[in-house]
Nucleic acid binder design. Structure first.
Ligand SMILES: [Zn+2]
Ligand SMILES: [Zn+2]
Ligand SMILES: [Zn+2]
Ligand SMILES: [Zn+2]
Lengths: 144, 144
DNA sequence: CTTAAACTCTATGGTAACTATAGAGTCAAG
DNA sequence: CTTGACTCTATAGTTACCATAGAGTTTAAG
């Protein structure tokens, strides 16, 4: 923790403490900076990154988005939108809708996969040899 | 297509035709070779890869496995097992079981995600501005 | 004041399973 | 024998990081 004198006193934290405050890793934070999701406004004399509490909140926002599996590109877009408070939010809605759709698609794919895997699994009688293993035999036959 | 004279005549295909026969991309095939899943037994005088029908089958096996989302490492293991016909096939069963479990876990994760996304989506009244968008507001609040 | 632990810096390489180039060489038909 | 289609190797890019190396900084204790 570092306290800097200017017109106001601001509590600044180094990257390790920011990581603890938000539950992000230090590498992630540097990565977000490289990807322009998070700015480092100050550096110490020795070139250490210093963050204020607004940045802590910004990173929490990012983390929240990531927990919903939004991509860094999508988060970047949300941040940009957030800076246009007067605009309509249809783009936000569209993004979330499309995300929901992607997730639904993926769930369906995986469910199909699961069904196929279960079917495959039943083709082996547990006490079999490799030569007679129904799983390997099934895998060797191509499907249409 | 190339026909080579040895003790037997063998029909050999180049990589492009192998790709068509199996539905794999040419790059995938070369990638599988680099990853030791598929051997190139012959080359033309000009160094083109030439494949026989056994290799076509081998690639179909790989493709079938990939359609079940088995990793290349797992497929490599299955191929190795296939070459030990006398052994018990418990390892095969274990691999499929563990795969099924992974897929189930992933489905659950995605379902959780889906629920959160739907809840988030309801927080926006469609005709809103960015400043008042419930989605952005929700994302700005960290959860415990 | 000095030293050592703990922290941070940049840069680089790795992950998985490919896709997409670039630039050069090969093959098959006309 | 030319030309277009094909193939070759090598390299970079994809995604969101993690891991490491080697160097410098900070801070607390001695
Ligand atoms: Zn998305
Ligand atoms: Zn079996
Ligand atoms: Zn697996
Ligand atoms: Zn909205």
């Amino acid at each position: 923790m570092v306290t800097i004198e200017s017109s106001i006193k601001v509590r600044l934290v180094k990257i390790g403490e920011l990581a603890k405050l938000t539950g992000c890793s230090v590498q992630s934070i540097r990565h977000y900076e490289k990807e322009k999701l998070l700015a480092t406004l100050r550096r110490s004399d020795g070139n250490f990154r210093l963050y204020d509490s607004a940045t802590v909140d910004q990173l929490k926002f990012i983390k929240h988005c990531r927990s919903l599996d939004l991509s860094l590109a999508e988060i970047r877009q949300l941040i940009a939108l957030n800076q246009q408070p007067g605009m309509g939010c249809e783009d936000v809605n569209r993004m979330i809708d499309s995300h929901i759709e992607q997730v639904a698609l993926r769930i369906n794919e995986l469910q199909d996969l699961q069904d196929k895997l279960m079917a495959l699994r039943t083709s082996c009688a547990s006490q079999s040899t490799v030569k007679e293993c129904g799983i390997l035999q099934t895998l060797s036959v191509s499907r249409k």
